[in-house]
Design a protein around this nucleic acid. Sequence first.
DNA 1: CGACTGATTGACTATACTCAACTGCGGTGG
DNA 2: CCACCGCAGTTGAGTATAGTCAATCAGTCG
Lengths: 218, 218
Amino acid sequence: MLAYSTPRSALPLQPSDALHPILSESFVPAKSQPCSFFPAGAEIYGQGEKAGKLYQVEFGSVRVSRLLADGRRQISTFLLAGEIFGFEADDTHHFSAEAICATGIRFFRLSTRADISRELLPLALRNLTRAQEHLLVLGRQNATERVAAFLVDMAERQGGLNQIALPMSRQDIGDYLGITIETVSRIFSKLRETGIIKLPSLRNIEIRKWDVLQRMSQ
Amino acid sequence: MLAYSTPRSALPLQPSDALHPILSESFVPAKSQPCSFFPAGAEIYGQGEKAGKLYQVEFGSVRVSRLLADGRRQISTFLLAGEIFGFEADDTHHFSAEAICATGIRFFRLSTRADISRELLPLALRNLTRAQEHLLVLGRQNATERVAAFLVDMAERQGGLNQIALPMSRQDIGDYLGITIETVSRIFSKLRETGIIKLPSLRNIEIRKWDVLQRMSQ
DNA sequence: CGACTGATTGACTATACTCAACTGCGGTGG
DNA sequence: CCACCGCAGTTGAGTATAGTCAATCAGTCG
């Protein structure tokens, strides 16, 4: 159980989040003021910075990414409200984390070595499985399948409802799926034209043919 | 320290393997006969099977992969002598593992919950970082960069020598890098023609221009 | 020595990228 | 309140990279 009350935010809801376990009392706050606000685009930590703390998304969303020298970017994961991130293999951050939109982050530090392992292992293993599954998407699926898989994943993480909120830009989606914004846009349009999704607004999607989308994602 | 002596095999040597920690005495054998032989292509475990044991490559090499319904395959990682694999987020294997060549596998089971976490967490975190770095390769690098990155990684894992042994087929390399065997072959030829590598035989590569290769891999 | 399998090479094609023009939403100021 | 501006997103045309299919080559094993 958390040592602090955890007020839930309005957007990116996550009613049935299977990713993060219930934290035990071995999680203690890293600061006396354990929750900070990050405006859209703000860096939470950078590649190469010293690691150690843990972070939980209180409200908003976060992208974890890595840049190549020439500016190409790969987003390895998105984090929605409730999810925990920031743990590393050594004492250095190998990736950077930024707020996608206005985001509240709670900081933690684990008390003992034993606690660290007990709490973190299930989290690390789940993230490992997720990363490996994303490797299949990037390595062997075409652009349409990638977008379909992304929408299905986002919908499931938001409680399996038909209405989903996308806190991230088309650029973020492209950098997560290893395709360009133009390709993302074209596929959204194609899915809309074939009645599989509706686009009430840029950042909101309604899934109309769940079964078709699921089949498209393989 | 291992409870058993660990004779090292001839091929895929791994003199300075930073991936696996020294196992403590909390690792106990899962069977009275803790080491098994797998011929090339043999399945060590399959997707969907019950997980629980840990596996260490005694000699030979292993590929961990996942198949799509239509036969497309993504290899998420290769394991060389000394490396440990088989841990999962839940009690089910989400991927399958097969011997690439004649391979000896040692089985383990961890004794207590505390031991499991203490031993496994650093391993899981390191694998997570590796998987995330591979996401960058699959998502944002072109075929030449992928092959270069693969060769650099294999060379480093085999002690940073110029001579490297590739236990896997071109198909395996392609399925790891998310490209076709023809593309792998064409890029090997191009690297050979430009004097960056030599190909003494199909499964042996000599790196001639280490700096160029490293720069190509970004 | 021949057959089989895996690898290479070539010709052609398709998918997704690049570059560019245009659209529309959201915010700001007159 | 409406008009304008700017940026994110969409759409289009042409291109390049890697894929597909097919033929050939080479290495291995019986």
